[in-house]
Every structure is written in structure tokens, then in C-alpha cells.
């Protein structure tokens, strides 16, 4: 299977890459290529220009702990996110999600920025990110801007990154003490896309009462979504079995899942409850 013909550019700086994107029509950014090339081989995507950003000298592959956030370079591979000790400690939800992507070869090559910009609603990292409410930092020809998570994912395969902008960093606000996070994916086979993916970040006080919580759902709407009624229900409650069970029952209220060969709408609506309960339990167990 061979992609349709395209012009290939391998710029050596971010500036140059943005300039090419700005001047060319129908250009696509190539990072790890584990989603884009698959689409191009099937001719579901036929960009006329590819801008390979893996050869630029600006360092976009890093994990940095800032004062109030964890900063991930957009070209950080899934394999690093899965294994990085700082991530495992601060945001196990991201390691959970990265470890469930595809297989080792895909995790070696695929990048966190690529996965988020591809914006497949069933992908693991976009869903996990949605529970952490990060800022997506993008650079364009004139300026850099930060896009809040709620505005980043617009539709299936669509983000608010403009055609001449490149995602450079993801800034994830650090969670306070007594917080925990987790992501669980439900799929028929290991490495498949999620039938339902659930992320959760819980912040407890010293008595185990929920100060704040974010629950994200993947593969159940055109973008990853938050289970807001469950979140609202849990705030101020002690996160015991009955509260988590009740919250899980409400978790599918905002969902509008599709029916496809991986699962029917009804099945997904039922599974949202099951996996919200399991993910909340795991996140709470990590908070203690």
C-alpha cells in the first residue's frame, strides 16, 4: 500500500516548518506518523505536502517539571510517557494511557502531540489529558498561544490548531497532595482502540472527602468529554463504594456514543458506568 504522491519537507527549525505550513495549501505535519501514515496508505488522507518535524533542532521531546505544571514536549514518544518516573509518580493516568496504545513498535514511534493533534475520540492520551485539563501550547507564524483543553478538541479528527500552527508543549497543572489519577481502557484485544476509555483525577482532603474531581470519557462522543454530572455529584462527598457507584450510574448522561463494529451504542452506555466505577476506584486508591 502506497500513499498518494506528496511533497516532503524536512525543515531543521520550528520557524521554517511553520513557514512551510503557512505558505502551502493542504499540508500536514508528520510527527511519529503512526496514525497519519496509516490513513495515507489507505488513502483516507491525501495531503499534498508533508512537513516532517522530527528533524528540527528545537527540542520538542522532553518531560520537565515546572513550578506548577508538568511540561511535555509534543514529540515525546508514548514509550517515554509510559516509563518516565516523574510521570508515573505525578500522573499515573498518563502512564496508564500510554502503556495501552497499540504495541511496542507504535509506542516507540508515536508521540503525545501527534496523538492529541490527530484527535481520534477513541485514542487513549486525548481522553487521559481531558481529565487533567492541560494547556496546549501552539506556535504560529506570528505568535505563540495556549489553548485550554476544553477548547482544543473540536470534533472527530479536528482540533483548534490552525493550519500554520504546530503544537510544541502540553502544560499539565500539578495536582495537590492527596490526589490520584487513573485511566482504564476497555477493548476486545490489547492494543486496539478503546470501546470505552475512562480517565479520572481525584483530589481529596485529609479525611477522604472529595475536594475536586474530573472524569473523562473517550470513544463515546465526537471528542473526549467530561462526565460532569458525576463530577458534580462527587464533590464534597466521601469517596466510598456507594458514592462512587452512584456517580458511575450518572457517568453516561453526557455521552452520545456511536454504534460501530466494536460495540453498539447501548453496550457503550452500559460500559461507561462499569469503567467509570473501576477508574474512580483506582484513582482513589492511588490518592491514599
Amino acid at each position: 500500500m502506497t500513499p498518494k504522491k506528496f511533497d516532503y519537507y524536512a525543515p531543521t527549525s520550528l520557524r521554517e516548518a511553520i513557514k512551510i505550513l503557512h505558505t502551502k495549501d493542504d499540508a500536514k505535519v508528520l510527527a511519529g506518523g503512526q496514525s497519519l501514515l496509516a490513513l495515507m496508505k489507505l488513502r483516507l488522507a491525501t495531503p499534498s505536502v508533508l512537513v516532517d518535524i522530527t528533524r528540527i533542532n528545537d527540542d520538542l521531546s522532553f518531560v520537565k517539571r515546572g513550578k506548577d505544571s508538568l511540561i511535555l514536549g509534543s514529540l515525546t514518544p508514548h514509550d517515554v510517557i509510559e516509563r518516565n518516573e516523574t510521570i508515573k509518580k505525578l500522573f499515573p493516568i498518563l502512564a496508564d494511557a500510554a502503556s495501552k496504545i497499540g504495541d511496542q513498535q507504535i509506542r516507540n514511534r508515536g508521540t503525545v502531540g501527534g496523538s492529541c493533534c490527530h484527535a481520534d475520540p477513541a485514542a487513549d492520551l486525548p481522553t487521559a489529558m481531558t481529565a487533567l485539563d492541560p494547556l496546549f501550547v501552539v506556535r504560529g507564524p506570528k505568535r505563540e498561544r495556549s489553548i485550554p483543553c476544553a477548547k482544543f478538541f473540536v470534533d472527530t479528527f479536528t482540533t483548534s490548531v490552525s493550519k500554520d500552527e504546530i503544537l510544541t508543549e502540553i502544560r499539565i497543572p500539578l495536582l495537590p497532595r492527596n490526589s490520584g489519577s487513573a485511566y482504564i481502557k476497555h477493548s476486545r484485544r490489547e492494543g486496539d482502540f478503546a470501546i470505552v476509555g475512562v480517565g479520572a483525577a481525584v483530589i481529596l482532603d485529609s479525611k477522604g472527602v472529595c475536594k475536586d474531581v474530573r472524569i473523562s470519557l473517550g470513544a463515546v462522543a465526537p471528542t473526549p468529554i467530561r462526565a460532569k454530572s458525576s463530577e458534580k455529584y462527587l464533590k464534597g462527598k466521601k469517596l466510598n463504594e456507594s458514592a462512587i457507584g452512584e456517580a458511575a450510574e450518572k457517568a453516561n448522561e453526557e455521552a452520545d456514543p456511536p454504534s460501530d463494529m466494536h460495540g453498539s451504542r447501548e453496550y457503550r452506555l452500559a460500559m461507561i458506568k462499569v469503567f467509570t466505577r473501576r477508574t474512580l476506584n483506582l484513582a482513589v486508591s492511588r490518592a491514599k
Partner: peptide
């Protein structure tokens, strides 16, 4: 599957130009 710069990759999921 091959090793590229020490890591396994599927060589059907890369362009030859990426191996420069």
C-alpha cells in the same frame, strides 16, 4: 519490524525518507 536508532519500529509504518 526493524531496529531504527536502537528502537523497534514497523518499517511499513515509516517512509524511506524518514530513515535518512
Amino acid at each position: 519490524t526493524i531496529l531504527m536508532d536502537g528502537k523497534t519500529v514497523k518499517s511499513c509504518m515509516l517512509l524511506a525518507v524518514q530513515a535518512q
